[in-house]
Amino acid sequence: MMDHAITLLLLTLAAGTPLVFAALGELVTEKSGVLNLGVEGMMLVGAVVAFIVATTSQSPWLGVAAGMAGGAALSLVFAIVTLSLHANQVASGLALSLFGIGLSAFIGLDYVSVIIEPIRPLTVHGLPDIPVVGVLLFGHNPLVYLSLALFAAIQWFLSRTRAGLVLRAVGESPQSAHAIGISVVRIRYLAVLFGGACAGLGGAYLSLVYSPSWAEGMTSGRGWIALALVVFANWKPWRVLAGAYLFGGVTLAQFQAQGMGVELPSQYLAMLPYIATIVVLAIISRNAAVIKQNAPASLGRPFHPEG
């Protein structure tokens, strides 16, 4: 039983990790007041670029870096269209997803049959063999640790640094931020690029670690779930983390039950996270003070200093 619990925990962490990357990135983007619905496209581009670079360079870590660059490059398109050219963010984000899905499939055509050596879990000699704690602390993939580090960094950045404060100010009230001399557009560009890089990293995790291969549409909607997650988390990093593991864990728990012969209608279970998100959202937004603290007030609104 203990073994089961540990395995389930390990699997849950592994399943939640791509969501952690993508959702944390989107959180930072949204904190600056920009809603980028193109996460699915950016993840896919990240996945394919990471895969191509990792196979041609034989260096998975170079692949990870390239995946981030790929995601960021795609988000740059979004940034130019929405921030410099003032197009609607919702429509542009959806168009970006369409574009990213097509682009990734297109550049990945010659790589669908390529085999890759995945990034393996760290094996610090002997450590994972310590009962229970060993596996839980040392048995993960390096990218899982990276996702936790990213979480800590973002948490610290948003709550403890001046730059984090500036980012939040831009998302809260771009007009006042502009008035005190902050370059709103520059900050938003950086936030969008960061979000793109994180989504690309989530994609790289999928193609290099989680199911090491490239196939069209291999993210299977995880980008959309990441979007839901940010809201579910009420724009708090630690809740993104918890939510990602919850989303990943629900599926796994359902699989565990199935394997043991317990019948649960999968559609009801699959609905749960979305319904839970709506309920949580409704409850937190009833309390205006809570939502005000966290949700960026200018989310989705274009900004131009003169109008």
Binding site: L85, H86, A91, F99, I101, L103, F106
Partner: peptide
């Protein structure tokens, strides 16, 4: 041509259309 070209081309066109509308208001 592979089916992915459709998505690629669609996305490009739509992003362009959305972007060029900037000149109506600016």
């Amino acid at each position: 041509l592979p089916s992915s070209v459709t998505g690629l081309f669609q996305g490009t066109l739509l992003l362009f259309l959305l972007a060029t509308d900037v000149f109506i208001r600016f």
